[in-house]
Structures are given as C-alpha cells and as structure tokens.
C-alpha cells in the first residue's frame, strides 16, 4: 500500500512538472523573444504581463474542431501527437534533479540508454504525422524529419557515450555521483555537440527545416488543428525541458554547485536547466534557419568528428588518470 502511494505520488509530481515547466518555457519564450525584437509580447491575458497567455491558448485549442483529413490514415494520424509527446514524459521520470532518493521519479540503471532511446521515439511522432496526413507538405516535412533524425542521433549518442566513459557508468545518478568540477572543461566539446544535436532533434530553430513554414507550411503538422496540434507544440516545449535537463545532468554537474550542496541541489539543477532553456530561446531569436544541405553538412562534417574527438580525449584522459 505504501509503495503504491509512493509510486502514485512520484508520478503525480512528474506529471505536474511535465505540464508546468513546458508552459513556463513557452511563456518565457514569448517574452524573451519579444524583448529581443524590441517588442513587449503578450500583455493582456491574466492581467499581469500576459502571464496566462498559454493557458488562454490552451483553452482556444481545446475549443477547436478536431479535423482528420478524408484521405488520411486515420488511426496513425490520431495517434501521432501522443507518440510525439509521451516519450518526453517517460524521459522526465528518469532525470534526477537532486542527490537523494526522493529527487528522481524512478532510478533506471541503464539511464543514458533509456533516456536516449526513448527520446528518439519522440521524433517518430513527426514521421507518423507526416506520412499519415496524405499531404505533400506533410510528407516533405516528415522526410526531412527522418533525415535530420538520422544525422543528429549519432553525434548525440557519441557525446553521451563520452560522459558514460568518463563516469564508468550509464546510470544518471551514478554519473552525477562521479562528477568533478574539472569535467566541465574536459567534456565541453561533448556538451556543445550534445546540446546542438539535441536542438536539431527537437527541430527547434535554427534547425527547423522540417517545419519551415515559409516553404512547406508547417511540415508534418500542416493538417493538424485543435488539441492535437497543441500536443505537438507541447511536445516541442517538453522536449526543450528534457534536453536542457539532460544536458545539465550529463555535462553541467546536475545538483553540484559552488555552494549549498546539501538539500539545495535541486535548485542548482533547475537553475542550470533554466539557463539552458534561455539559451535555446536565444539561439532561436538570433539565427536564421539552416538550409537542408547545411543542416546535413553540419552534422556529418562537424558534429560527428567533434564527438569522436571528444571520445578519444575522454579515453586518453581516463587512461592517464588510472
């Protein structure tokens, strides 16, 4: 009975975080992007600086008619948003935010494997949507998504493997327990590769070729409306939270901080995640979209060699230490 309650409580907390943090990131994006462009952003919803804008958006999406195109593959089309969104929820369960037992949804022994594998599933949602929509633009978007997934999954895995090598474990809390501050400069290249590849996998600008709205309308999401479209958007922001959280855990030392290590570790985790989320928004505002060939070129000629170099460096240092 007590175990069941414990599991239920953890799931509720993880779910609450999963619902709230993406909205916080979304609202921050509204505001930060607006100010970076000399605007104010939403100012009305909720009264104070438009804090309830995304809630209002959610209400609007829920009111809209749920349309499935006549020629679409109905079941796949309807399933796709769930496939896009749920993996991020699962990943969130495994991310530790503090050193104690209670600060993680569920400790997974093969944490990195689990997390990266499940995150890869999220992209399948876009593929399913693109194929099932029976729309040329959706199909193009889906194919671009597939190409991007293939190109960027590899450097991401290699960068994560470098950390696992350094820590000698694939468990996320295990990695953080082994973390030393000098890992930061040691793994910095890997961190950059991981973060950039993660951005590309989320199809965030400047890597948003699969949903380039000026060319292919909205890529795989072209035919979606209402709540299902909202779920895709939510998946994108949940993806930002998960990516920033993972980068924090793997490369930035998670709950380790200059001070306040005891009891306040989760603050460090959240702070680092928030800073990374800001960087995600900042990059979106600053850079134009990469062309499809530039996208592929960046992955295959820059990120993968860098990730391999990082692995070599990790191996050499690891051997030298031992």
């Amino acid at each position: 009975m007590n175990d069941a309650l414990d599991v239920a409580l953890r799931l509720v907390i993880v779910f609450a975080v999963f619902m709230v943090l993406p909205l916080v990131v979304g609202q921050t994006e509204h505001k930060v992007m607006a100010h970076m462009q000399g605007r104010l952003g939403p100012m009305y919803a909720g009264g104070f600086h438009g804090w309830a804008q995304l809630v209002a958006d959610g209400v609007k999406f829920a009111q809209k008619e749920d349309i499935v195109p006549a020629e679409a593959d109905r079941r796949i089309f309807q399933l796709a948003p769930a496939v896009a969104l749920l993996p991020y929820l699962l990943v969130l369960v495994a991310i530790p935010i503090g050193p104690s037992e209670g600060a993680v949804g569920q400790i997974v022994d093969a944490g990195i494997f689990f997390v990266l594998a499940v995150m890869g599933v999220g992209v399948l949602g876009s593929l399913m949507a693109g194929w099932a929509s029976a729309n040329k633009f959706s199909l193009l978007g889906g194919l671009r998504t597939a190409a991007q997934l293939l190109a960027y999954e590899l450097p991401m895995l290699l960068a994560a493997a470098s950390v696992a090598m350094a820590a000698g474990t694939v468990s996320l809390p295990g990695i953080l327990n082994a973390f030393e501050w000098w890992w930061l400069p040691w793994q910095i290249v890997g961190a950059l590769v991981f973060f950039v590849a993660g951005l590309a996998e989320l199809q965030r600008p400047p890597f948003d070729m699969p949903i380039a709205d000026s060319e292919i309308i909205f890529g795989a999401y072209t035919e979606y409306t209402g709540l299902r479209f909202a779920l895709f958007l939510l998946a994108e922001y949940a993806g930002i939270v998960v990516l920033c959280g993972l980068t924090t855990v793997l490369f930035l030392g998670g709950w380790h901080g200059p001070f306040g290590a005891d009891g306040l570790g989760w603050v460090w985790t959240l702070l680092k995640t928030a800073v990374l989320a800001f960087v995600v928004i900042w990059l979106r505002v600053s850079y134009p979209r990469l062309r499809e060939d530039q996208l592929q070129k960046l992955a295959w000629t820059a990120l993968i060699p860098l990730a391999l170099a990082q692995i070599a460096l990790t191996g050499i240092v690891k051997v030298a230490i031992n």
Binding site: G38, R39, W282
Partner: peptide, 21 residues
Amino acid sequence: GLAKGLAVTLRTMTKKTVTAQ
C-alpha cells in the same frame, strides 16, 4: 559572426521596447 548575432539580440533585450500600447 555567430557571437555577434547573439550579442545583438541580447543587447536589444536590455533596451527599452518600442511597442506603442
């Protein structure tokens, strides 16, 4: 060039907005 782009957006963020309410 990449750093310059980031600097521009960050500087704009700290400036007063031009939105007419």
